[in-house]
Design a protein around this nucleic acid. Structure first.
Length: 801
DNA sequence: GTGGTTCATATTTTT
DNA sequence: TATGAACCAC
């Protein structure tokens, strides 16, 4: 595209002087408003560069400007840039931001993506170097576990004592450290009952046989290829003149090697990260990557971005003071020229329910404006928790008071059963040798093919050394499975063959060996008769899968059908089924657009990279946050990571940050009491305001002496707090409180008598047959006899809805 | 081969 | 408490 075209696009048809002037100004506008440090990060073009970007210091902006600068001032082609992120969300955001950067990028930066998606792209071209076919499948966690279970069975290992998940974790850890089975050090030989290494080797062999890889393999295979095929490496070293890496503190060893190898020719590697925000150590991220950047990349320059544009001074000061407690850090001091703002607010509650109730009320108050804080919309506020089980209390509370909320990062679309089933069908249609997919769907919907029938297929397939689908075909031909099951299997096999044929039109030979970039084989096919969308629908219908859910009468069935419809709709964005499968296995997120303002609830991990005017940080209790397990397992390292999590949490807040803790909390159904988090001690007093909950001791008005004193004093060593502790010991954990639940329980249990007619929301009407504590045994007219919690039962004539 | 009951178990989560 | 997996009974 010529620059005149752009001008036309920008200024309409007019080419006036004024427009020209405007154009040349716009052209450099990517640098406008950058602070000196940011500008330094943009201008340092050659050689290794580490940008230490603190929270809210305009990191993304700087990166975008850097790309624009490279392309405009240094004549770099978009395809010479490799830009790597961790999450698809980040990649997507970068893509969008690049498009918006004025006059910079005429052609899209093609090599922009996650480590995994870029590796997948590369691996499809060179798969034969690691004994894979280019159409290898990428396994999801489900498949992985199923495969490992099979291995454990073959090796006669007790799944109870040695859970498959554990082995999956061990293998993942090795892969994160770029260790192939042969390279696992002897010091790890004890892993998984001394059999870990051997099982890892077997696992890799099975993957190869299945023409499949797991997520770790995508990187590990590429590192292996780079290390053993200098010609291949040289090709990409040459191509990627400039490498950009986001969230560098989250890289693991394999990713470091991957980057290091690729950058050795031009050495133009620019990594952006913040050691203080490294919170993924538990899944293999290695902070030493960022701490030792200068040694790993000799001649590296380090630029610090320390001016924070996000938070007010009180909030920033609190965050800085907390993170200062960490020993191993590169050291940064964030500052801001923003206003002082509100102090960080701290509040203690009696228990988790009350904490949720208080936050609910506070959300309402803040929508109107309270305590000098401007009125805010619900979507400007977020609740960030340490562990997802904390979310329940909020959901319960918000449901009862009708507070609109959304949970970010919950169970995702792709993880749903029906989606995985449908995907397995698609996978099988695209690659019939996908045994794991076959296993998943042979008997879904029910075809009368149970363990025995499946074993027959397995045996036949193994004897003939073929895939399960092929084995099943032989089984059908030889009539090894009789009756209903045999007939159903024949239908399935015929169907698969038919659908597979539908993926292609007539074959066309193309003379083209120049295509290196898309890695497509020179054999092409004509247009298929059906679009892939139609094909997907055909597969789901003809396999009986749609009917399976239509016949299902459970309350979830309509939703599942809805999801399947959504899945088919999504296909519209892709050219074919293969493309879609790759997308789903790598991208797998599906955030629905929400309508209306809602308060967000999410984990601290999920909140990284986000910001909100008002942030609530509940559950700051020792053992919960910092998490006991973290400290037990990795000691001081774990504690430091928890502290970084606290830092991440506080720095999400722009204007108001509210930290809270509860004295009592129900954990696994048991009441537990706990001390306020040690991180609360690390909050600087002068930047913290201690609030008093209006109903702390069950009353309505804060009138008793305890509350007043708690408000004045420093909560963590206040008499109020100590008294709270004392009370708790005095009354014990079972101290009944006047909560909604206990009231209902009490009346409910008391009011039911044997033989009484009752109603249950889900099971309908029935008669009481027995009472045990808060559980009532009811013979339901339709659903049979069940034990249900009295709370959910109502006398026949007293149904409240 | 299916369904119901019992039993163990319990961060953070992306690709 | 609450969920999932394993096992046992039809």
């Amino acid at each position: 595209m010529s620059s005149f075209d752009e001008m036309d696009a920008f200024e309409g048809a007019s080419l006036s002087q004024q427009a020209m002037a405007r154009f040349s100004q716009e052209k450099r506008s990517y640098k406008k408003g950058l602070n000196p440090d940011q500008e330094k990060a943009v201008d340092k073009v050659e050689g290794p560069l580490l940008i230490l970007a603190g929270a809210g210091t305009g990191k993304t902006r700087t990166l975008m400007a850097r790309v624009a600068h490279l392309i405009e001032e240094h004549n770099v082609k978009a395809y010479e840039i490799l830009a790597v992120t961790f999450t698809n969300k980040a990649a997507q955001e970068m893509r969008v931001r690049l498009e918006k950067t004025p006059y910079s990028v005429q052609e899209p930066v093609k090599w922009l993506g996650t480590f995994h998606s870029i590796s997948a792209k590369l691996l499809r071209r060179h798969s034969e170097l690691v004994d894979l076919k280019p159409n290898f499948t990428i396994l999801d966690t489900d498949d992985q576990i199923r495969l490992i279970k099979q291995l454990l069975k073959v090796n006669n290992i007790d799944e109870k004592r040695w859970p498959p998940r554990h082995l999956a974790g061990v293998i993942e850890d090795w892969k994160n450290r770029a260790l192939t089975p042969a390279k696992v050090p002897a010091s790890d030989a004890g892993a998984f009952n001394d059999k870990g290494i051997e099982l890892y080797a077997q696992y890799q062999t099975r993957l190869r046989e299945l023409n499949a890889v797991d997520f770790g393999d995508l990187l590990l295979h590429m590192v292996t290829i780079f290390q053993s095929h200098p010609d291949v490496l040289a090709q990409y070293q040459h191509r990627f003149r400039y490498i950009l890496v986001d969230e560098y503190q989250d890289t693991n060893v394999a990713q470091y090697l991957w980057l290091h190898l690729l950058s050795q020719k031009h050495k133009n590697i620019c990594c952006v990260g913040d050691d203080d925000q490294s919170i993924y150590g538990w899944r293999g991220a290695d902070v030493t990557n960022i701490l030792r950047f200068k040694e790993n990349f000799p001649g590296a320059e380090v630029v610090r971005l320390e001016q924070n544009y996000r938070s007010t001074r009180h909030i920033l000061a609190a965050a800085s003071n907390v993170i200062r407690g960490n020993e191993s850090r590169l050291g940064k001091e964030l500052w801001t020229d923003r206003e002082e703002g509100e102090k960080v607010r701290l509040i203690g509650h009696w228990d988790g329910e009350e904490e949720a109730r208080w936050i609910g009320e506070e959300l309402d108050a803040m929508q109107v404006g309270t305590r000098g804080v401007r009125p805010m919309n619900l979507d400007e506020m977020a609740i960030l928790v340490r562990a997802s089980h904390q979310m329940r209390a909020f959901e319960d509370r918000f449901l009862t008071i009708g507070m609109p909320y959304k949970v970010i990062g919950g169970p995702r679309f792709y993880e749903r059963m029906e989606i995985r089933d449908a995907m397995a069908y698609f996978r099988l249609v695209v690659s019939p040798e996908d045994d794991l997919a076959f296993e998943r769907i042979v008997n879904t919907p029910k075809r009368g093919l149970g363990d025995k029938a499946q074993q027959t297929i397995q045996v036949v397939a193994r004897e003939n050394g073929v895939s399960l689908v092929e084995g099943a075909r032989i089984v059908v031909e030889q009539g090894l499975i009789k009756g209903k099951g045999g007939k159903a299997l024949r239908e399935l096999i015929d169907g698969l063959a038919r659908w597979n044929a539908m993926t292609r039109g007539p074959r066309i030979e193309v003379d083209d060996d120049t295509v290196i970039d898309d890695g497509v084989s020179p054999i092409r096919y004509g247009a298929p008769e059906h679009t892939h969308i139609e094909l997907a629908q055909i597969v789901l219908d003809e396999s009986g899968y749609t009917a399976h859910w239509q016949n299902e009468k459970t309350p979830e069935a309509p939703g599942r059908l809805e999801n399947l419809k959504e899945l088919v709709n999504q296909l519209d964005n892709f050219e074919n089924l293969q493309g879609f499968l790759e997308h789903v296995s790598l991208v797998m997120d599906n955030e629905k657009e929400t309508d209306g303002a809602k308060v967000s609830i999410m984990t601290l991990h999920a909140a990284k990279g986000l910001e909100f005017p008002a942030v609530f940080l509940p559950g700051w209790e020792d053992g919960l946050f910092p998490s006991q397990r973290s400290m037990d397992e990795t000691g001081i390292k774990g504690l430091e990571e928890e502290r970084r999590l606290a830092y991440v949490g506080i720095t999400r807040a722009e204007e108001v940050c509210t930290i809270s803790f509860a004295a009592n909390r129900r954990v696994f159904g048991q009441w537990q009491n706990s001390m306020p988090s040690r991180f609360i001690d690390e909050l600087p007093e002068e930047h913290v305001e201690v609030l008093t909950p209006p109903g702390l001791y069950g009353g309505g008005q804060p009138s008793a002496g305890i509350e007043t004193r708690a408000a004045e004093a420093n909560v963590y060593n206040s008499p109020g707090w100590k008294r709270l502790q004392a009370r708790q010991g005095q009354y014990g954990m079972s101290q009944p409180r006047e909560t909604r639940n206990t009231v209902i329980d009490a009346t409910a249990v008391a009011s039911f008598t044997l033989g009484e007619r009752v109603f249950h929301k889900k099971f309908g009407y029935g008669a009481v047959e027995g009472i045990e504590g808060d559980k009532v045994e009811v013979a339901f007219d339709k659903a049979g006899t069940k034990k249900v919690v009295a709370q959910y039962l109502f006398p026949k004539d007293d149904v409240p809805f």
